[in-house]
Every structure is written in C-alpha cells, then in structure tokens.
Nucleic acid binder design. Structure first.
Lengths: 205, 205
DNA sequence: GTCTATACGGCGATAGAC
DNA sequence: GTCTATCGCCGTATAGAC
C-alpha cells in the first residue's frame, strides 16, 4: 500500500498513520501501533516521546495532504467552468484514494480545534485569492452572482460529506451492497460537476 | 436549556446527553457526567448498569431526533420546489438548534456502524417513498432528470457538512470572528435553497 | 536500537454503610 | 436511593538489561 521503508522510524510512521486514521487519537492504542509496525511499545516511546507527539507528527502530514493545491488550479488562464470541474476532479480523486480522511479530520478538528489552527497557520494557507478569482468571474458574467463563500462551502460539502457519512449511505441507501455503494461514489465526480455547473452557469441555451 | 426534570434519572439523561454529544463515547467520562448531573458515579451505575448502556440510551434518542419526518413533507400535494424548500428549512432549523449533532453522529457512526444500523431498523426508516416522489416529479418535467440518490445526497451534504466542519469554517473563512460565522450560518437556508432550485429547475425564463 | 518487565495513573465498576 | 471507599483493569510511560 504505502512505500514501506526499511528503517524503524518510517515503519512506525506508517503504522501510526493507519491506526490513527482508522481509530482516531482517542481510540488508537500504542500497543496496536507497535503490533502493526512489528515492534514493541517501548520502541515507540524511544522514537517519539509520547502518544501526543506521535499523533502530532501524523496529523501534520495528513493536513498537508488534505489541503491540495487548488490555488494553482484557480490561477490558471482557463474558463471558470473548467476550473470548477478541475477542482472537483482533483478533490474527489484525492478522497477516493483516502476515503477515511474526512471522518478522521472532522473528528480530530472537533476534538481539538486549536491543533488544527496551528497547522493551518504553519502551512500559511489563505483562501483570499480564490474568492477574488470567483468575484472576477462574476463581474465578467461568466457565472451568476452569489456569495463566493457559500459557493465554496456548497462544493466542498458535496465532495467531502459523502465520505464522512459513508456508513450511513452504505446502509440506508444501498442496503449494504458494496458494489452499489462503490458505483455511487464512482459516479459522484460527474454528478457533482453537472449539478454545480447547472447552478452557477447563466442561462445559455 | 432543556426541560430539567426533578427526578434523578432525567437529570442523568440530560447531563449524559450534554457530555456525550460534546466529547463522544470515547472522550466522555462517567465522572464528568456525574458532576454535571450533580450526583456521584455510583449513582450512574445504579440507574444505568454501564457506560455502554447509558450511551445507548442517549444515542437512540438522538438518532430519533436527527431523522425528522421529511417523509411527511414529501407526501404533501405541493409543487416539488416547495417540498425541497420545506425540507431544507426543516433540516437547517433542526441543525441550528442542535449544531453539535452532525459531528457527534458522524463520529459515532464511523466508530461503530452496527450500532447505528440497529437503530435505523428499529425506527423502520426507509427512503424508498422519497425516491418515488422524486422520480414522479421528473416524469412530469417539474425538475430536470437526474439520479435521485445523488440529488438527496447533494442536498443533505450542503445542509449537514458545514456544521460538522464548523471549526474549520470559523477559522479559515472568518478568522475566528464569531458574529461573521453566525451570520454565515444564518444565510445558508436561503443560499442552499437558491442553489438547489437553480440546479434542478428546467429552463423557465 | 531493541527488548522485557514494571511502575503509575485514570477510569469503569462494585461493595457496603446509611 | 444516595453516598464513600475501593477494587481491578487497561493504557501510557519508564527502567534497565542486552
């Protein structure tokens, strides 16, 4: 699955990532991480002094992963509709590859928001440029006029939420049929793009 | 806040609800629940034999609350657009009143899906009738043709996700300005309705 | 660096007086 | 029914041999 390195530290990081993402900070056990890494508990504390420290290392890497470079997409010279499609493609591809991220991040952010805030500051992430570009597209009449912040939240909601609620969808909508659920998630790229474009495109045809 | 009853059992249920919803099953402490109820730990175990049992009682009530009667709205004789607006209004009113529910439910459902499944079966909830009504609206040309399951997930995503991601929105979008965040959430009813209706309404004007 | 053994604290649960 | 006191487990963290 992941690039398994030979050295112990990477084995620990890899194991810790798997266990933390699945169980969360509170549900994870140092014993389980040690087992998955093929070592013992004492060695975990030798490399990382505490469970907190180990978790911070993992969480920091994951936050970096989950805030991909959508800024770059928006900087490009393409039509706004193309940018929207690109962002949805990029984000849903990322989530299909890491379907546990939304539930994990939401859980940990709600448990300790300050931890997340520090990381956002460290990564220097700012949404302002994106809103400017959206405003410009509205000024040009490329898309209808609306509140850009709501537009962004609409799109991210439709992309992210279904992964966080996957067990519910799997059971309520598809009666625990794994193939049907998988098919549904495969379709979402197309469905979200169509829905959003229909909502924001001025009357054309 | 809540209808505080005099008898101990209700004081416990009320305290447990507050603590469990804020901290989750894994984060909650029996001591904290006892403190909030103004009693001691032993009495908790006298009324509910274990932490698990107490949690089940709370979770069951909350799931009942979070699945409101949107079925009834859909049964009515109104135009489809009206039904959509009504559902969004109902759901967002519910969530404004209980903003912690989404994060709590997502956390617990991902921790132990089977617990949730049993409750859904007990409540006898089925989405099939809703999908039928959506199909009929499409047949009549009242809304554009699309996959009803995706439509439902789109709408629920836009309603629920922002509450689960509230700390992120509060910090990244509004720089920890509480009033601005509150205003944003107040606007969402209107914004979600407009967005959805634009996406699903056939070309009119 | 890696292991075994153990200390230490927290928490769910119970015993038993009132 | 309600309390105080305490048990026993489990999980993090450390000591110390190799």
């Amino acid at each position: 699955m992941n690039t398994k390195k030979d050295n112990t530290e990477d084995k620990i990081l890899d194991a810790a990532k798997n266990v933390f993402v699945k169980k969360g900070m509170e549900g994870a056990r140092m014993q389980e991480i040690a087992d998955e890494a093929g070592i013992n508990k004492a060695l975990l504390h030798y490399y990382f002094r505490s469970k907190d420290k180990l978790f911070d290392a993992i969480f920091s890497k994951i936050i970096g992963l989950a805030f991909p470079k959508i800024g770059e997409i928006f900087q490009s010279d393409q039509a706004f509709a193309w940018k929207v499609e690109q962002v949805i493609d990029t984000y849903l591809s990322l989530l299909m590859k890491h379907p546990y991220l939304p539930a994990f991040i939401l859980k940990e952010v709600n448990r300790d928001p300050s931890m997340f805030f520090k990381l956002v500051l460290k990564h220097g992430f700012s949404p302002a440029p994106i809103f400017e570009i959206i405003e410009e597209a509205m000024d040009r009449g490329e898309i209808i006029r609306m509140n850009p912040q709501h537009l962004v939240v609409h799109v991210l909601s439709m992309c992210i939420f279904p992964f966080a609620a996957k067990p519910i969808i799997h059971f309520v909508l598809f009666d625990e049929d794994k193939q049907a659920t998988q098919a549904f998630f495969d379709e979402r790229k197309q469905e979200v793009k169509q829905f959003v474009l229909r909502a924001i495109t001025p009357e054309l045809k």
